[in-house]
Design a protein around this nucleic acid. Structure first.
Length: 544
RNA sequence: GGCCUGUUAGUCAAGUGGCUAAGACGCCGCCCUCUCACGGCGGAGGCAGGGGUUCGACUCCCCUACGGGUCACCA
């Protein structure tokens, strides 16, 4: 077979040579050891939660080595393409503080960054492959392939287009010409010289040394529409764009031998690979790969549900690097991008997505913010997702700020909320728009006793009191109304008391906040102001 | 089914032949001048099973079981 002639027959329009592109995309000039990584999504919809894993690895590896992290759009399948998805992906990541050094909106020297714009390049390299005898056209129709598969299945053979089953391998130049002239659609296939009885050793940076089976399948390289499939595009792009580290999900592991084969066929240097574990979700009792189909898995739905992006990022980091939490405890105030990310600390098996843990991480992240930061972000979020609340807090910025300051700062900050959507239920009672008595006293008390406590307290209440005086007055009220002023004492000897100071405090809390639980009552009352406290206490009397 | 890969408490995980097997979340109990939150103290709960190798295996090897991935003109 005259491969050169075959290549001319298949690619008459290709006039460039691969040398042209090799020269056009020279080695990147980067410092020693700089890593070049890429995130390469297909624009088939929104980015889902699991996408955060590889992209964060990409970002850390590049940043920590003064390298480059770029975005490449893998849109070689026009059937699955979703309009607007490209920009959506970029915007979604931006919400999470993730940006790329090069992308379709920020072209670098190694573009185009959209695969559908690189067709000429792929064809040039494909032509080379054909002329070197590594690829051939296949005219088999889908029907033929289906039949082949059925036969192989019946005979319990390995499925696929390989060896003796690869009929089109043996087509002569004239036969090819004939079919071409007849307008029969074809795909370009790899002519595999691999043997599935041979094993190859390969070291993955995450998985370690792997033993893989050589590829003997004549995989498709170019689809009948002339676009490459993932495999060919991956090899050519990551070569020309000089990717040093390919970070991708472990679902790609089975096709790795095929990729290695392609790199070798081209004579390209192999990049380093990192196949990372998939995030799983629980489906009944079974673990399932988290996918785009899962409701609420979209990155932006975390935003709309009220998660702080930085909290989501930290949660992902706890799963990505087992020592992240230790680092965070030791460095509570350092920005997250200073975390010394380490490949060695990456998990081998897929973690189960844990909403409860996310909530915990989230509370911790928010507890480290200042009241001002909380306020800004809260305004930002409510602007889109709770306009009424947004109006309330922005009308009273100082007041809101003082509320958000409760128990903030210091060594043991409060952790009352992990979601922006949890703030309103927590602080709503401070505002007349939301104040409502929603709880009832716990335990059995005479209404007259409750009334007596409130009345007695109203007599003594003075907003100018300091905390100790304030508490002394609570004790006085308790004692006067027949409640024990010390909980401890009461527990030792409850005889003769109607209850204890905890109970009388509860009545007052109910009147002031409408709820059984609240932050420190003294502070709450200070913020509300004497007038409002008095008003609420009096109002409560009418409701008992 | 073939191929690949993984398996330490409910979840996430340290651990690389010699520990009473870290820690975190969750759960339970106690403490912290008022509830909650925070914090502190304590508790329940684990090396999938079976064979080897070894003076000694969570750690090395083999088998089994179970989980996951993949076998497209999708990425």
């Amino acid at each position: 077979m005259d491969y050169k002639a075959l290549s001319e027959l298949l690619f008459p329009d290709v006039t460039n040579t691969i040398e042209f592109y090799e020269k056009k995309y020279p080695e990147r000039s980067l410092p020693e050891g700089a890593k070049v990584t890429r995130f390469a999504p297909s624009p088939t919809g929104f980015v889902h939660f699991g996408g955060l894993f590889p992209v964060l690895v990409d970002q850390y590896l590049a940043r920590q080595s003064s390298g480059v992290c770029y975005l490449r759009i893998e849109d070689t399948d026009s059937n699955r393409e979703v309009k607007g998805a490209e920009l959506d992906i970029i915007k979604s990541f931006e919400l999470f503080g993730i940006s790329f050094d090069e992308s379709i909106i920020k072209e670098g020297l190694y573009g185009p960054y959209r695969q559908s714009d690189r067709k000429e390049i792929y064809h040039t390299y494909a032509k080379k492959l054909v002329s070197d005898g590594y690829a051939y056209p296949c005219f088999c129709a889908k029907k033929d392939l289906d039949r082949l598969r059925v036969n192989q299945k019946a005979k319990k053979l390995n499925l696929g287009y390989y060896g003796g089953f690869a009929k089109c391998r043996n087509l002569t130049l004239d036969q090819v010409k004939e079919k071409l002239d007849a307008g029969i659609p074809y795909v370009l296939r790899l002519k595999s010289f691999g043997d599935c009885n041979n094993k190859i050793k390969f070291t993955d940076l995450v998985k370690g040394t792997l033993e893989l089976t050589e590829n003997d399948i004549d995989h498709v390289l170019l689809k009948s529409d002339g676009m490459p499939d993932y495999h060919l595009a991956h090899v050519i792009d990551d070569h020309l764009m000089h990717t040093t580290h390919v970070v991708r999900g472990e679902e790609w592991l089975p096709s790795l031998p095929f990729h290695i084969q392609l790199f070798n066929a081209f004579g390209f240097k192999l990049p380093k690979y990192m196949h990372i574990a998939q995030l799983m979700r629980l489906d009944g009792n079974a673990k399932k790969k988290l996918s785009k189909r899962d409701k609420g898995a979209g990155l932006t739905s975390y935003i709309s549900n009220g998660y702080a992006p930085e909290a989501v990022i930290e949660y992902v980091l706890t799963l990505l690097n087992s020592n992240f939490e230790d680092w965070r405890r030791a460095n509570p105030d350092l920005p997250v991008n200073e975390f010394p990310f380490s490949i060695k600390k990456m998990s081998l098996s897929g973690a189960l997505f844990d909403l409860v843990k996310l909530a915990d991480v989230s509370r911790n992240v928010l507890s480290r913010m200042t009241a001002e930061q909380i306020y800004d972000r809260l305004c930002n979020w409510t602007q889109s997702y709770d306009k009424k609340f947004n109006k309330v807090i922005t009308q009273n910025p100082d007041y809101t700020l003082s509320i958000l300051s409760i128990g903030r700062g210091g060594q043991k900050p409060r952790k009352d909320f992990g979601l922006w959507s949890e703030v309103k239920p927590y602080i709503g009672f401070f505002f007349k728009e939301y104040f409502k008595i929603t709880d009832q006293p716990e335990g059995e008390f005479d209404k007259s006793d409750i009334r007596a406590v409130i009345e007695e307290y109203l007599n003594l209440f003075d907003p100018g009191d300091d905390k100790d005086t304030w508490f002394e007055k609570l004790k006085t009220v308790a004692e006067k109304t027949g409640f024990c002023p010390s909980t401890k004492e009461y527990k030792q000897n409850p005889e003769g008391w109607k209850g204890h100071i905890g109970d009388t405090s509860m009545f007052i809390r109910l009147a002031i906040t409408g709820r059984l639980n609240s932050p420190d009552l003294y502070t709450v009352m200070q913020i509300l102001g004497g007038q409002e406290c008095r008003r609420r206490l009096q109002k409560y009397l009418t409701k008992i």
